[in-house]
Design a protein around this nucleic acid. Structure first.
Lengths: 265, 265
DNA sequence: CTTACGGTTCCATTTTACGAAACTTGGTTT
DNA sequence: AAACCAAGTTTCGTAAAATGGAACCGTAAG
């Protein structure tokens, strides 16, 4: 977390700290963390504010996150996330199953939701895109973990808290066994491991070369549909994930070997 | 355009440039812009990548925007934008008018859309939140410009391109007169100034102290509803904007009630 | 008037970033 | 195969910056 990347790293660290508060924050609160001396912190905040990554309310003297982040993130979401490519598939899956569908990617050992569609309310927005969740106890998280190359998987696993959200939450050992099963089966199940009464089935989205790009899941509340109802969707989720992977490949890397020859500049 | 804020400023400038491509970009493409020498650009990209603001695909050697931006923006949107507070009002307005409703804020002289609701499709997502538009020829933009303090208004106006998107687009002089009218009337009209066939009515969202927080608008396609149809919604939009402003005040500055009144002028 | 506190500015010192040039890598031409 | 070239990476002396302790300012309380 505290990667020392010179001045830029410090500035982004401060940005993260402000974000972590989840509310506007005063200079003195940040100073009280003791991370940076007064003058240094002051200048970092000045720069971040002047750059629009933070906003400063002169009346209250509080710093909040700046709207430039929203602008940048829109570009990030539109060009680098799976969401735009996956949208039609995700929509169709939600329609077929009549359940909430999530699209997620990995970001720093955590699950980052990049899209969410519920069959009733239609596409949900920003409030869902950008949310993060644990990797070790969600369907999408486990689906991605299972297909990570061993070295990376190890690194990500080392970052997990293994906090027991529910009685069904797996510990590190049980997770290992589950990941094995997921690799064999191609789909991951979350049986109330993160939230009581919530179950889901997820599948990893892989590139042609087998790299993990993300994951899709179908979520259901126990009782309405039950785990049995979801079981029938497993194959559908897997097919959808595969289709998204192929589209992503075509969209992001529009041909490889042959194109190179023609491409001169 | 880019203020020279030391190393951090440069890094963010590079980030913006990558974002501007709207696609993954090679080191050499950025280098060819001639903005930074090789080694400097290289190190800036290294830092941004290691920080997760950019992602680097080792296969293709291309840089794209990183998912950390999406995570940060979610926090920004949820804590610093008007969207969460305004959501119920915006929803209700869309339901009453049966038209598309936009919520926007100012960001660096441009209009930044932070939410959008269409009565049919329901809430739209990220693809709308984060999009930017011109301030001088959109309803929301003009509504905000009109109520900016003179000094700031001048600064923002100086940044406008006044490109004539349509025959109805106002020039600088006509805009000045329109802003006067908007201040008197409390609502702004966009009569096909930005897109042919698209009209809208907007109102500014003000804090109790009169500071511009954002704007709401109702948009319609000419022919279906016409400008006359929209005219009937003007008062509704204004009331909605006022309600949002009050909620925002209560939410962001819970205890500041009496201070603000004294602070007028 | 005095003290205390949050925030801002100064400036000598240290650290960091800079960038021309050298080098490495992988693919293409002679 | 050797020479070549372009893209990307590393080096290193120098130049520029960030740093942070201390002084300063404005406001609110004692």
């Amino acid at each position: 977390m505290a990667a020392r990347d010179g001045t830029v790293g410090k500035a982004l660290d401060v940005l993260d700290r402000v974000a972590a508060y989840g509310r506007p924050v005063r200079f003195s609160e940040l100073l009280a963390e003791g991370r940076y001396p007064k003058a240094t912190l002051y200048r970092l905040l000045q720069v971040l504010t002047s750059q629009g990554l933070l906003s400063h309310d002169p009346d209250t003297g509080q710093y909040g996150l700046g709207m430039r982040l929203v602008r940048l993130a829109h570009a990030a979401w539109a060009t680098a996330s799976l969401a735009p490519v996956a949208r039609p598939h995700v929509d169709a899956l939600a329609a077929r199953t009549g359940q909430v569908v999530h699209l997620a990617q990995l970001d720093g050992g955590q699950v980052l939701y990049v899209d969410k569609v519920s069959p009733r309310a239609g596409v949900e927005m920003f409030s869902a895109s950008g949310r993060i969740g644990p990797a070790y106890c969600t369907g999408v998280g486990k689906a991605m973990l299972a297909f990570l190359p061993p070295r990376e998987a190890e690194a990500v696993l080392a970052q997990q808290s293994f906090h027991a959200f529910t009685p069904a939450t797996l510990d590190a050992a049980a997770l290992g066994a589950d990941l094995e099963r997921i690799r064999a089966e191609g789909v991951a199940w979350d049986r109330e491991e993160h939230e009581p009464g919530i179950v889901c089935v997820a599948a990893p989205i892989l590139s042609r070369g087998g790299r993990v790009l993300g994951a899709v899941s179908v979520t259901s509340a126990l009782g309405r549909d039950g785990l049995d109802g979801l079981a029938g969707h497993g194959e559908d989720v897997r097919r959808t994930a595969r289709a998204i992977g192929e589209d992503a490949q075509a969209w992001r890397f529009p041909e490889r070997a042959e194109m190179r020859i023609a491409e001169r500049g």
